[in-house]
Computed example of a mutant assay.
Amino acid sequence: MKLLAIGDNVVDVYLDRNEMFPGGNALNVAVLAKQYGAEDTGFIGIVGDDSEGDHIIDSLEKNLVNISHIRRAYGESGKAYVDIDATGDRIFVKSNKGGIQSKLRLKLDPSDYEYMKDYDVLHTSIYSSLDDQLPLVKQLLPISYDFSNHFTDELLKTVCPHITFAFLSGSDLGDKQIEELINKIHGYGTHYVIVTRGSKGVIMSDRTQSFIQGIEEAEVIDTLGAGDSFIAGFLTCYLNHHTIKQSLQLAALRAARTCEVNGAFGNGKQLVK
C-alpha cells in the first residue's frame, strides 16, 4: 500500500534534556507507515526555514518519505514543548501554535491533486487545516482522519461525510458515550470508526460489527506518538489486505513499541542554546 499524509508537523522539544524530535500527527503517520512496510509514503506540509525545519526535512529524507510537494516558508517551524512524568506519559507544556503553519494555511493545487493519484489512502488530522478541501480529495482516494480528543459535533458533521476512517481519542468517555459517538459518525457517512481509550484499549466498528482490542505490554519510557503509531500500524496492515482483527492487534503492538523509545520514532537532536 501507498500512504500520503498531509498537514501538521512540529518538533517536540523535551525540556528535561534540551532535545528535539520531529513530530506531528500527519508527519508521524507518514514516517511510521513507511517503517511498518508501506511501499511508499509521502508528506505534504508547511515547514519553517529555521534549524528545526532543517531537522524535520532531514528526518523525513532519512526515513525515505517522499517530500517532493512539501512547502518551506519564511518563519518559525511548529514547536511543542514536552515534559515526561514518572509513568512515561508526555505532558505538553506550551507550543508556538504551529508556527508559520498557522499563518499560512496549506492550499492544495492541481499538481498536488495529480500527485495524490499515486497513493492508496490519504491521512490528515484535526490540526492540519484541510477540512474545506476534503470534498475534492475524497474524489481521488479514501481519507483517514485523526480527530484526537478535540472534536465537536459541528466538526464531525463537517468532516465525516468525506472520510473513510475516523480515529478518535475517547479515554475520558464511558461505554455508552462511545457507542453513541460511533453511531453518530456512521450516520454522517464514515465507514470505519476507531476509538482509542488509553490503557483500556480500542473499540472499533465497521458498521456491521464491533471489535475490541486491548493494549500490549510495554516498557514505557515515553508515550508520545503511540496513537500515531497505532494509526500507521492499522492502516498499513489493513490496506495490505489483512483482517480488521489482525490489523488491530498489530497496531496495538506497534503502539507499545513506540512507548519504548523517546519521541514518536527517534531522530532526536540536541538544541543549540
Rank of each mutant, 00 (worst) to 15 (best):
E76T: 13
G198F: 10
C259V: 02
F230T: 05
E52R: 14
R105T: 11
L4G: 03
S68L: 09
S111A: 14
F211D: 00
V195Y: 07
K117P: 03
F43R: 01
S59W: 09
L271T: 12
V272Q: 15
D228N: 15
A218N: 14
Y81E: 10
G187W: 14
D49S: 15
S68E: 11
G99A: 12
L168A: 13
D131S: 11
Y238T: 01
Y145T: 02
H55W: 13
I100Q: 03
S128P: 10
D206H: 11
G174N: 12
K97Q: 13
G24R: 06
K269Y: 07
I178H: 03
D85S: 06
S51E: 13
V220A: 12
G227D: 15
S199F: 04
R207C: 09
V121E: 02
S51W: 11
I231H: 09
R197C: 11
M20R: 13
S210P: 00
N267T: 02
L239I: 03
V121R: 01
M116G: 00
I46D: 01
S144D: 06
D40Y: 08
R71I: 03
A166Y: 01
F21C: 10
D58L: 10
Y188V: 00
Y14K: 12
K176C: 09
I56W: 06
V13H: 15
D85N: 14
I67V: 08
T223M: 01
